[in-house]
Design a protein around this nucleic acid. Sequence first.
DNA 1: TCCCGACCTGAAAGTCCCCTGAACGCGAGC
DNA 2: GCTCGCGTTCAGGGGACTTTCAGGTCGGGA
Lengths: 241, 241
Amino acid sequence: MIEPETSGRTPEAMLLVVEDEPSILELLAGSLRFTGFAVVTASNGADAIRAARRHRPDLIILDVMLPDIDGFDVARRLRSGGDRTPILFLTARDAVQDRVKGLTIGGDDYVTKPFSLEEVVARIRAVLRRFRGGGAEPPPRLVFAHLELDEESHEVWRDGRPVQLSPTEFKLLRYLMANAGRVLSKAQILDHVWNYDFQGDSGIVESYVSALRRKVDTGEPRLIHTLRSVGYVLREPPGGT
Amino acid sequence: MIEPETSGRTPEAMLLVVEDEPSILELLAGSLRFTGFAVVTASNGADAIRAARRHRPDLIILDVMLPDIDGFDVARRLRSGGDRTPILFLTARDAVQDRVKGLTIGGDDYVTKPFSLEEVVARIRAVLRRFRGGGAEPPPRLVFAHLELDEESHEVWRDGRPVQLSPTEFKLLRYLMANAGRVLSKAQILDHVWNYDFQGDSGIVESYVSALRRKVDTGEPRLIHTLRSVGYVLREPPGGT
DNA sequence: TCCCGACCTGAAAGTCCCCTGAACGCGAGC
DNA sequence: GCTCGCGTTCAGGGGACTTTCAGGTCGGGA
């Protein structure tokens, strides 16, 4: 069991990540720490329950396929012990859609494997938002220049007019908008927007950038800029290479 | 190229460089020491793990092709041992396709061989910044006279007005600005700005200096000075030999 | 002053990166 | 089973960038 830690800043929330496959645990924990969460981990159900009681995380990311106790059982035991911590389940795409769906009414949610980091982070924030509710919560909208994006409803507007985006286009735009002004390399984009098991490349990022431009960036000024052999950046024009 | 030691000033950070090819190891270690880093080295995976545990470097530069343990495995072993030192991977350009995916997620990054030293130093600083900082700190900028250069967004301003530079022009200017006041020989410039396996010359440095002057050094006072048969230097006018 | 090497600069050629439309296959929904 | 939307790959074309080169300029030493 690993102690919480982030690099310096005060964490946005404390997460417990429960996953038995080391590479995925590492991927999630590393990326979430880097995103600004404090993270503790467990790799089986028993440890998960102990860690939840000990660290009292704000949210639990819970694989449903664990070596000892099934993820749903972990959830059930916590709940029957009075623990109301919201849970984000990780499930295989084909498995147990119905069992999982019932869980989302309680404020919990699920993400199917293989996931993209963009997806997981978005869901985490959504669940935390719903759960904390009430107070001064950050609006679930990203705004940049004449673009507006609603993370919850998956709607996008350009100059106030709705734009239809495919799921991947939406994730790409969300990633760009969340990092507006920062240059993002193609590797970063692939790592965050595409599923972790995606192997190919062959210019898929270019394809999607092209599609996005057509849909949301035709007018002036241009917002999506190419930095040759460096990456892409979303920003208002004045700016050198 | 053996450079003098930097006299006594406290190093910017401690790096562990892991690379099995002696010539490249020497190139990297020497140049990084000269730049102001403290450097320890290892030339295989097992030594790398030992050195990481013993010296606790701020960052590890890790070749993925090692004689014993694959660089990715080295990283995995360190991580699973709780070590979260950021890593800058060195990979062959054609190996980028398959295994590089996922490397940028935890704050790590990679550079493809053959690299330029400028590139490596820039990436090192970027990774250290991300890893240490995170908070609301000003973007990393090089400033000299009326020139301003943002390493993160690749933007350059002259008298506050943006200037468009090609990637190589940008690297050259960054090298000059990072060494403002220091005379740089053409050989040094070639070694740092161009890839280490670059063979030709035929006045390519002159060409780029010329282009840079046209773009950022037309007004008065002149900043980029030629020292005949010695090199170039970026400094304000009163100039000696 | 002359000479020679070093340097400057614009242009040409070639390369590399990127953009875009089209084709293919897959899965979901009808 | 069929259709449609989506994700992915691929190839052609265009354009930015790199590198070379030649002709001109400059500066210093003899």
